[in-house]
Write a protein that binds this DNA or RNA. Structure first.
Lengths: 218, 218
DNA sequence: GATTAGATGTTGACATGGTCAACATTCAAC
DNA sequence: GTTGAATGTTGACCATGTCAACATCTAATC
């Protein structure tokens, strides 16, 4: 049950999960690499990806504006790091949600709910992960690998249900793309505030039900 | 069958749909307001929304960098205009697709296909429309009205199918949100190039089929 | 046709932001 | 302690959005 990756691991930091500023009087920060990601995430949550500036991140961490370049090639690399961390936590979340009820149909549904819940809980990560802010050059292999792992979790669950005779026998990859599209659609609308007041959790539960049984009148 | 709004009306321009540059020697452009939108769309298609700069748009139109401000309050207003035009064409496209086969189930399916086709054909518009690039302040009433009209086209189609006893009797607005989420998910994955080589049209047709009948084994 | 007000477009300037080059400080291994 | 690598700083440059002041054109009026 222990997760492999937590986005904000419980640490000695304040309850607000504020990234560590450099201790006063010290020249080195200590863990600037990590603090940069955390502060970037915070900023994105507050002001959106477009509102993210390296200078404000540096200032908030009490560090000069170019200190970042010792750890990331450029702004895109920082965003890629955010995305990579996001995919790692995302994959873990999906896998855990599926495994918790012992897999099977309950696990499948739990995974769907966890998908949207992750997006709503970590909109900054989700937006960077899927918002197309990453240049092709910034899609480092590690990032792609993490993304593949997330997708594999979904495909695996589908294959399991098919073996149990609970899902139609279409190509698992095809089914997975469809399930992903549905989840992605709900997630995007939810974090873009376009659900017209509907509750994201309930919206996704409805989507899962309709996903399984369809909307045609029986 | 005549559409109320075409995104690129057939005009005297070249086949490349290049927006008109200012005629050499002339002080006024003639229709800068419209040319700005077209050039913005072109740029977004080529370089993404983040790659859009007012200066390059102006330069491409052979106009000074601040000429834009005689027609739009700021960059956001230009994007809002792009979105508004997009929603107008989008609503028309959906309505036409539904009406062409005489409505009913065939119209519903056609509308779904048209949804994704629009996104794939006009990714720049679609991204601006749904990508969250519009500030709340830029959501002018006209834009919201056009968006509502698009959504109403979908809801209307659903109500029709319900009356014909072809769809489950859930709240039409709820059903519409679900159908929209599915379509939006496929569309976003398609224009983000995340369909792993799958054909968007076929992907959407599959989604429609599963949307109607579900993925559970019969 | 001359006048003139409003529409349209231009130039110069400024603030913000990403990034590079050169330099400073600290840490860690010897 | 010495020293090379890691880490951080300062100054500068360029691109971009935007404002203020000015220039030019169009169209309506006399």
């Amino acid at each position: 049950m222990a997760s492999r990756a937590r986005i904000s691991p419980p640490s000695t930091r304040s309850a607000k999960a504020r990234p560590a500023r450099r201790a006063p009087g010290r020249y080195h920060h200590g863990d600037l690499r990590r603090a940069l990601i955390e502060e970037a995430v915070l900023t994105i949550q507050q002001q959106g990806v477009e509102g993210l500036t390296l200078r404000s991140v540096a200032e908030r961490l009490g560090v000069s504006r170019t200190a970042l370049y010792r750890h990331y090639r450029d702004k895109g690399a920082l965003l890629a790091a955010v995305a990579r961390e996001g995919f790692r936590a995302f994959g873990d979340t999906l896998a855990e949600a599926f495994a918790a009820p012992g897999g099977g149909p309950a696990g499948f549904q739990a995974m769907g709910r966890a998908y949207v819940r992750f997006a709503v809980t970590h909109p900054a990560h989700y937006r960077v992960m899927f918002g197309g802010f990453l240049d092709a050059c910034n899609r480092d292999p590690e990032l792609v690998a993490e993304a593949e792992r997330s997708f594999a979790a979904l495909t695996g669950a589908i294959v399991g249900l098919q073996r149990a005779g609970l899902l139609c026998p279409d190509d698992p990859a095809r089914l997975a793309r469809h399930v992903w599209a549905v989840s992605h659609g709900v997630a995007m609308l939810a974090i873009d505030g376009q659900l017209r007041g509907a509750d994201p959790d309930e919206e996704m539960q409805y989507a899962i039900d309709r996903l399984l049984t369809g909307i045609r009148k029986m």
